[in-house]
C-alpha cells in the first residue's frame, strides 16, 4: 500500500513532520521543544505545521539554550510528560551532553527503576559539505554512553516507523536523521518507498537484511545503506554476492543478525559514516568475532571516516567519507584475500 507519500511527492522532512503530528495526536502527553521548530516549521522543515496544530505550549520555540531545554526535558519526563527534543545539528549536543548523559541516560538506573525517562531527541547528522562543526554523526560516541538508545534510519519507511517507535519507547532514544535525506522525495529511495497509510512502528534493535548474498556481509546504516546497495549491485556483476544489512540502530546493536550472516559468508565489512576509531565499526567486528570465533571469520574490514575533522572543501570531504568507489574497493580486497 502506498499511502501518504506516493501521490504527493512528499520529502523526508515532510514525512518526519507528519509522523510527529501523528504521534502528538495519538498521545497528548508529547511536548516538542527545540530551536526554530515552532513558527518557522524547523530549519529542515521537519516540524512544519505542528505549531499551528498543537499550539505554543506543546510545540515550543526555545531560545538557543540547549543545556536549559535538554534539562527541561528531564523535569517534564519526571512530571509525567513525554518530551521530544530537537537538537538542530547533532554536533550541538556537546553543548548539552551533561543532562543527556548524566540525567536522561542515567535517571532510570540511579532511581532503581522508579523514574522513567521517555525522552526522544532528534538531531541532524552526516556530511553534506558543511564542514567540521556541522557534519558529524556521533552515533558511536552517543552509543558509548550507557542508557541511551541510538537510531539512524536509512529509508522513508523507517524514518516514520523508527521515529514512532522511539517516541513511543519508555527509554531515551536519540534519532540521528541524515541531512542528505531531508529534501529527497520518498519515491527516490532505493528501498522503503512503500509507506503504510496507517500508523506503524519499526521495532528498535532489529536489523534489516536489505539484500541477500553469500560471499560478504556488509553491515551499515543511514545513508550508507543506499551507497552500499549500489556497490553491491556492481559487485554482483563481478560474481561477488554481498549481503547488505541495515543495522537501523547502534543501541540496541543487532549483532545477532550480523553474526548469522557472517556465519554463512565468512566475511564482514562494516561501512560507517562516523569516526573509525573506538566506534561502531570496531564494536561490531569485535562482537561478531567473539560470537563466531576466529576460525569461522575469514576476514573483517572497516570503512569509516578517518580520525580527523570533516574538512570544509567538498573536494576534501569526498576524500574522507565512505563512498561507492571505496566500498567497492574494500569489498573486493576482503573477498580477494581469502
Amino acid at each position: 500500500m502506498s499511502g501518504n507519500g506516493a501521490g504527493r511527492q512528499q520529502n523526508i522532512s515532510q514525512l518526519i513532520a507528519e509522523t510527529i503530528g501523528m504521534e502528538m495526536e495519538r498521545d497528548p502527553g508529547i511536548v516538542f521543544l527545540g530551536e526554530d521548530i515552532g513558527y518557522s516549521g524547523g530549519t529542515f522543515g521537519a516540524s512544519r505545521d505542528l505549531f499551528r496544530r498543537f499550539g505554543e505550549w506543546r510545540v515550543r520555540d526555545t531560545p538557543i539554550s540547549e543545556m536549559g531545554f535538554a534539562g527541561m526535558a528531564v523535569g517534564l519526563a519526571m512530571s509525567g510528560w513525554r518530551p521530544l527534543v530537537e537538537i538542530m545539528f547533532v554536533d550541538f549536543i556537546g553543548v548539552c551532553l551533561e543532562p543527556v548523559y548524566n540525567a536522561i541516560a542515567k535517571n532510570r538506573y540511579m532511581s532503581g527503576g522508579r523514574v522513567a525517562m521517555p525522552v526522544t531527541i532528534r538531531a541532524a547528522g552526516g556530511c553534506i559539505g558543511v564542514a567540521a562543526q556541522h557534519s558529524q554523526t556521533l552515533w558511536g560516541m552517543l552509543a558509548h554512553l550507557p542508557g541511551l538508545k541510538v537510531v539512524a534510519p536509512s529509508n522513508p519507511h523507517d524514518y516514520r516507523g523508527l521515529l514512532a517507535a522511539s517516541i513511543e519507547s519508555e527509554d531515551p532514544v536519540i534519532v540521528i536523521e541524515h541531512k542528505d535525506a531531508y529534501l529527497r522525495k520518498t519515491t527516490e529511495f532505493p528501498l522503503g518507498t512503500e509507506i503504510p497509510s496507517g500508523r506503524y512502528t519499526v521495532p528498535l534493535g532489529k536489523a534489516n537484511v536489505v539484500r541477500r548474498g553469500g560471499d560478504l556481509t556488509l553491515a551499515t546504516l543511514s545513508t550508507m545503506v543506499e551507497k552500499s546497495l549500489a556497490a553491491a549491485e556492481v559487485l554482483q556483476t563481478d560474481g561477488i554476492g554481498v549481503e547488505v544489512i541495515d543495522l537501523r540502530s547502534v543501541v540496541p546493536l543487532d549483532d545477532a543478525t550480523v553474526t548469522d550472516s557472517v556465519a554463512r559468508t565468512g566475511r564482514l565489512l562494516v561501512v560507517d559514516e562516523d569516526y573509525l576509531s573506538f566506534g561502531l565499526s570496531g564494536e561490531l567486528v569485535a562482537r561478531v568475532v567473539e560470537n563466531l570465533g576466529p576460525t569461522v571469520v575469514k576476514g573483517v574490514s572497516r570503512l569509516a571516516n578517518p580520525d580527523l575533522p570533516i574538512p570544509a572543501a567538498l573536494s576534501l570531504e569526498r576524500e574522507v567519507i565512505p563512498n561507492e568507489d571505496r566500498i567497492l574497493s574494500a569489498a573486493r580486497t576482503i573477498v580477494a584475500s581469502g
Binding site: 534539562g71 527541561m72 523535569g75
Partner: peptide
C-alpha cells in the same frame, strides 16, 4: 523530589517541572 549531583543542573530540571505545571 529529586537531586542531581552536577552543580547548576538542578535548575533546568526544575524548569521542566514548572513548565509541566503550566501544561497541567
Amino acid at each position: 523530589f529529586s537531586v542531581t549531583g552536577i552543580v547548576g543542573s538542578s535548575l533546568p530540571v526544575a524548569l521542566g517541572h514548572a513548565y509541566a505545571c503550566r501544561l497541567d
